[in-house]
């Protein structure tokens, strides 16, 4: 940006707007906006801790009746709970808010304002709104994973690194899923209940997907990839899954990213706008 000669107009040379600057500005503005409401931090912390206490109570209740659940020991199940909590925080702070804004804009025909800007539209619509406080869940979830890992013999450093890669892939997968669903709003205008539906489905990720019957396992692998996004990192950390599985997840993610890109472009083409 600094080297751009003053004579060139931004609109004429769209490639001049650097992606990195766009990302930094969008994230910065969102963060400043949210940091005004500092009391919400305590509310979020309270909510995170209540949710964690509930999750622990449920796990404790289950292990009152059985020593292992589908081959998972109590502390191993806490890893799943931790990953689920942390990824949930990422979804609610980085992914979901922008997608809901996008849904609103498509419905109200206000997306023109985003599409006419000289930046990659997908990048812009994906980062327009970020809420900071749900990131507390990321910290809480990460803490749970660390504490649980110290009590598991099968947890190793390479396993933890693989888990980290897997969880990042998981975040990308969930982002793609959200964008594909939201892009559906270009054709089916009323998609608000999808958020409700997704949050319902996401709750299933608190348990290892292997517990579910075959047809649900398929649903939670391909359609809503919780098996890959939440269970796989937990499996990698507890030595149940190795390089091969994470490699497979990488290929799946790459394919999903490509499909999402194609589908988004298809959607934008059919966007009519609301201007007269």
């Amino acid at each position: 940006m600094t080297t751009t000669p003053p004579s060139t107009h931004g609109l004429a040379r769209p490639e001049q707007v650097r992606r990195r600057d766009v990302v930094r500005t969008l994230v910065g503005v969102s963060a400043l906006n949210e940091l005004q409401y500092r009391v919400n931090f305590f509310l979020q912390l309270f909510q995170s801790l209540v949710a964690l206490a509930t999750a622990i109570a449920v796990v404790a209740l289950v292990f009152l009746y059985t020593p292992t659940l589908g081959g998972w020991e109590p502390w191993e199940l806490m890893v799943v709970v931790g990953v689920h909590t942390a990824l949930g925080g990422v979804i609610r702070s980085v992914i979901q808010p922008s997608m809901q804004l996008l849904m609103e804009d498509i419905r109200e025909g206000k997306l023109d304002f985003a599409l006419t800007k000289p930046v990659d539209a997908q990048l812009l619509v994906s980062l327009r709104r970020i809420t900071v406080w749900p990131l507390v869940d990321v910290v809480v979830g990460f803490g749970v994973v660390v504490v649980a890992s110290t009590r598991i013999d099968s947890a190793t450093v390479p396993g933890a690194l693989l888990a980290l890669v897997a969880v990042l892939l998981g975040a990308v997968m969930i982002y793609c899923l959200w964008l594909v669903i939201t892009t559906g709003a270009f054709w089916i205008v009323r998609m608000e209940h999808v958020a409700e539906l997704f949050n319902g489905l996401y709750q299933a990720g608190r348990w290892p997907i292997g517990l579910f019957p075959g047809w649900l396992r398929l649903l939670f692998t391909v359609l809503v990839p919780l098996a890959l996004a939440v269970t796989l990192p937990s499996e990698a950390l507890t030595g149940r899954a190795g390089l091969l599985a994470v490699g497979g997840a990488t290929l799946f993610t790459a394919a999903l990213v490509a499909f999402t890109r194609w589908f988004w472009r298809l959607g934008v083409k059919s966007y009519a706008g609301a201007s007269a």
């Binding site: 659940l69 409700e196 539906l197 489905l201 709750q203 348990w207 517990l211 649900l216």
Partner: peptide
């Protein structure tokens, strides 16, 4: 349908 998920999870577990 969103509401179905919750009892199905409990039921399976």
């Amino acid at each position: 349908i969103g509401m179905v998920v919750e009892p199905v999870i409990y039921l399976v577990v």
